[in-house]
Every structure is written in C-alpha cells, then in structure tokens.
Simulated scan of single mutants.
Amino acid sequence: MQIGEVAARTELSLRSLRHWDEVGLLRPSGRSDGGFRQYTEADVEKILLIRRMKPLGFTLEQMAAALRDIEALDAGSEAGVAEARARLVGTLADATARRTDLERRLAMADEFIALLGDRLA
C-alpha cells in the first residue's frame, strides 16, 4: 500500500512517515516503479508500535532499538534473543515509569481544569 493509505490507517502525517524513512527508523518494504514508497501489513504494525511509543517520549534511537529487539524475538533464533529480551525488559520498565508520570501530569491537568471551572461557575 502507498504512503497515503498508511497515513490514513495509522492517523499519522505523511511528513512523519517520510521523516521516519529518511532517518532510518522505519523504511518501507519497497518502492513502486515510479519510486513511491510501498508498505506491507508488517510495516503498518511497526508504525503502530512506534505511534504508541511516541506519547511516552521515547527518542527515535530508543524506538529503533525497541523495534530491533522485537524483531529479534519474533525471529526466534537463538542468537541475540536473550540480550534482546533483557533490553525489552528494561524498555518495559521505562515505558511503565513514563506512563505513571503521564498519569500524574494528567491528574494535575484535571485538577487545574476543575479549579478554573469552579472559579468561573
């Protein structure tokens, strides 16, 4: 599928998808004869994984590392699986801590909105 369809399916901008290709985070699986990016369902799944990491504030490098580790686990070969699993355990702990921080900040935002609502009522 072409980039426009992928952008619509993943609710991401064309600019983001092009940027991720340019920096090597996620390259499309192929190109059409006209040079257009061609994505597979597996590419879309990776894009959705990246999109889920973005709100947690992971860097492009951290997202790329997580993708590599997930691919290593999915490949199931013995080489590097233990190391990939160990790194993903750390990524999971990091993601959990980041989510906790987001929850705390969201609670503060809710308190602020409630305070303003009370003052204006």
Rank of each mutant, 00 (worst) to 15 (best):
A8Y: 03
R119W: 12
D43R: 01
E22F: 01
A121D: 15
L26P: 00
G76I: 08
T96S: 12
D21I: 01
A8M: 08
D118P: 01
W20R: 12
R27A: 07
A66T: 07
A79Y: 10
R99M: 09
R87I: 00
I3V: 13
R68D: 15
V6D: 05
K46Y: 00
R52N: 10
L92A: 12
T59A: 13
L92Y: 11
I70A: 15
D21M: 08
E41L: 11
T91V: 13
R18T: 06
A93D: 10
R18W: 04
L88V: 01
I50H: 00
A93Y: 02
I70D: 10
D21Y: 01
E5L: 05
Q2F: 14
G117T: 12
R104H: 12
D118L: 14
A66E: 02
P55G: 12
T10P: 09
L120I: 15
A42N: 09
A121V: 12
E83M: 10
F36K: 12
G30I: 01
R87A: 03
L88D: 01
D33K: 08
L48N: 13
T100D: 14
A7N: 07
Q2W: 13
R87P: 04
D118V: 08
E61I: 08
K54G: 04
I113E: 15
R31L: 11
R68K: 13
A84M: 05
G24R: 03
A114W: 06
V23R: 13
L116C: 15
R18S: 07
Q62F: 10
R99H: 12
G35F: 04
G90M: 04
K46T: 01
P55F: 12
L56E: 05
D33P: 10
M63Y: 07
W20P: 05
Q38A: 10
H19N: 02
T91I: 05
D21Q: 09
E111G: 09
E5W: 04
A95I: 00
M1E: 11
R18D: 00
V6M: 06
Q38H: 06
A84W: 05
E11L: 13
V6G: 01
A79E: 15
V23C: 13
R51Q: 15
A75E: 11
G57L: 09
G90D: 05
L49A: 05
A93C: 04
A82I: 14
L60K: 05
M53Q: 12
S77I: 09
R18V: 08
L92S: 10
T40H: 04
A64R: 15
T10S: 15
G34Q: 02
A75R: 14
K46A: 05
A84D: 09
L26H: 08
A107K: 09
L26W: 03
D21H: 04
A8L: 13
R52C: 03
G80F: 04
E5N: 07
R27G: 02
L92Q: 11
R31I: 11
K46R: 15
D69G: 08
R15E: 11
